[in-house]
Amino acid sequence: MTLKHQYNITINKYDGTLSLISDLARLIDRKYAKIFHSVVVHGSVATNEVIPYSDFDGLLIVRDEFINSKPLQKFKIESMKLILKFDPLQHHGWFQIKESDLKNYPENYLPVSTLKHSKLIYPSKENVEYNLKFSEEIDYKSGLRAMLNQFEKRNQNNWKPSNTYELKSILSQIMLMPCLYYSAINNKGIFKRESFDAVKHHFTAQEWEPIVVASQLRKDWNNNFSKFQLVLLKIPHPLLRKIIKKFGAPKINLATQNMLNSEFYSNLNMLIKKIKTDIQ
């Protein structure tokens, strides 16, 4: 595959006050420095826009020889203990690439438009410069199609989120749709926050309404955990967490249930059909 594009980017040191980031940096420095080229945080944590809904988005750039190593797996478990203290409903793990991927950067996995808003966790220096190279032909559609197919399958099975863990996961997917849609029709990435205004005009009010509802629920999010639920939801063990996130998360409150009515799901289906038509 011929590499056509090149992008030079400087990631500056994290300049916020969130204790999670300093805790992660200390963990890496103390035990895991040798396995990473660098580690960055992106999303609301990086831009200092943390709200109660916020989760943690971080990218590991792993030295190639450690990509399938036990130390890397141990780091993920140890770091997840810290991440779950920040967000007990964390619904995904670390983003991850190999150091060699910088020479064939997976732009459709984590767009440069997102990476350039990130902040450096490791190494402990003021900034790191990346000279990224990536292919001329990038598939921006397959990931979006997979998400849309998942939503359609849920609809066929009349599946609805049963607790706040499942709800947060679904809302996050819905709010990612404008970003993925923009990339699919324009063949380039965009920062998630900027994607809403960039694509809204493509949709009717009904089609866009699920984005409005999801955004409002994000804004009004309130983590109402019992002490017992907090203890359970902070357990990082992967197998146990599959059970805990199903049965240990708080139930969805009545006001939210009323917003997620039949009209919401009908409009969501229209949104999905519109996107699938547009990206054919």
Score class of each variant (00 low, 15 high):
residue 230 L to Q: 12
residue 271 L to R: 05
residue 269 N to M: 10
residue 188 K to F: 07
residue 125 K to A: 08
residue 276 K to M: 07
residue 80 M to G: 01
residue 43 G to N: 04
residue 50 V to G: 10
residue 33 A to M: 01
residue 271 L to W: 07
residue 155 N to F: 15
residue 48 N to V: 00
residue 138 I to K: 07
residue 174 I to A: 11
residue 128 V to G: 10
residue 227 K to E: 13
residue 8 N to E: 14
residue 36 F to G: 00
residue 134 F to K: 02
residue 259 M to H: 06
residue 100 S to D: 05
residue 147 M to P: 04
residue 138 I to P: 09
residue 126 E to A: 09
residue 2 T to L: 11
residue 207 E to Y: 12
residue 85 K to F: 01
residue 77 I to R: 09
residue 143 G to C: 08
residue 264 F to M: 05
residue 218 R to P: 03
residue 1 M to C: 14
residue 71 P to S: 07
residue 186 N to D: 05
residue 236 P to E: 03
residue 149 N to F: 14
residue 152 E to C: 13
residue 268 L to R: 10
residue 29 D to S: 15
residue 49 E to F: 04
residue 126 E to S: 11
residue 210 P to C: 11
residue 220 D to C: 03
residue 32 Y to A: 07
residue 235 I to D: 10
residue 228 F to R: 11
residue 149 N to K: 14
residue 182 Y to K: 02
residue 132 L to M: 08
residue 102 L to F: 03
residue 69 S to Q: 04
residue 118 S to I: 10
residue 146 A to K: 15
residue 228 F to H: 01
residue 22 S to W: 02
residue 170 I to N: 11
residue 112 V to Q: 06
residue 177 M to S: 12
residue 236 P to G: 04
residue 192 K to N: 03
residue 14 Y to K: 13
residue 91 H to V: 01
residue 5 H to P: 00
residue 132 L to H: 12
residue 166 E to G: 06
residue 63 R to C: 03
residue 105 Y to S: 08
residue 107 E to Y: 08
residue 16 G to I: 02
residue 207 E to A: 12
residue 88 P to Y: 06
residue 134 F to T: 00
residue 104 N to K: 05
residue 32 Y to S: 03
residue 73 Q to E: 15
residue 143 G to Y: 05
residue 203 F to V: 03
residue 243 I to P: 02
residue 31 K to S: 15
residue 138 I to G: 10
residue 97 I to K: 02
residue 113 S to W: 02
residue 91 H to N: 11
residue 179 C to I: 03
residue 181 Y to R: 02
residue 165 Y to P: 07
residue 262 S to N: 15
residue 199 V to F: 09
residue 161 P to W: 10
residue 111 P to Y: 04
residue 260 L to G: 11
residue 234 K to I: 06
residue 218 R to A: 03
residue 137 E to V: 10
residue 206 Q to H: 15
residue 188 K to T: 13
residue 279 I to A: 05
residue 221 W to N: 08
residue 28 I to W: 07
residue 151 F to R: 05
residue 53 Y to P: 00
residue 86 F to N: 01
residue 92 H to G: 12
residue 227 K to Q: 11
residue 273 K to D: 14
residue 67 I to V: 04
residue 2 T to Q: 12
residue 126 E to I: 01
residue 122 Y to V: 02
residue 254 L to F: 02
residue 122 Y to M: 04
residue 274 K to I: 01
residue 149 N to D: 15
residue 223 N to P: 03
residue 237 H to W: 10
residue 133 K to H: 14
residue 10 T to V: 13
residue 192 K to I: 02
residue 184 A to G: 10
residue 7 Y to G: 01
residue 208 W to N: 09
residue 80 M to C: 01
residue 250 P to K: 00
residue 81 K to L: 01
residue 39 V to A: 00
residue 2 T to S: 11
residue 178 P to Y: 12
residue 190 I to R: 00
residue 43 G to A: 00
residue 7 Y to W: 10
residue 72 L to V: 03
residue 176 L to R: 13
residue 95 F to E: 13
residue 183 S to D: 05
residue 157 N to H: 09
residue 130 Y to P: 05
residue 83 I to N: 11
residue 21 I to Y: 10
residue 73 Q to S: 13
residue 194 E to V: 05
residue 157 N to I: 04
residue 135 S to C: 11
residue 151 F to K: 06
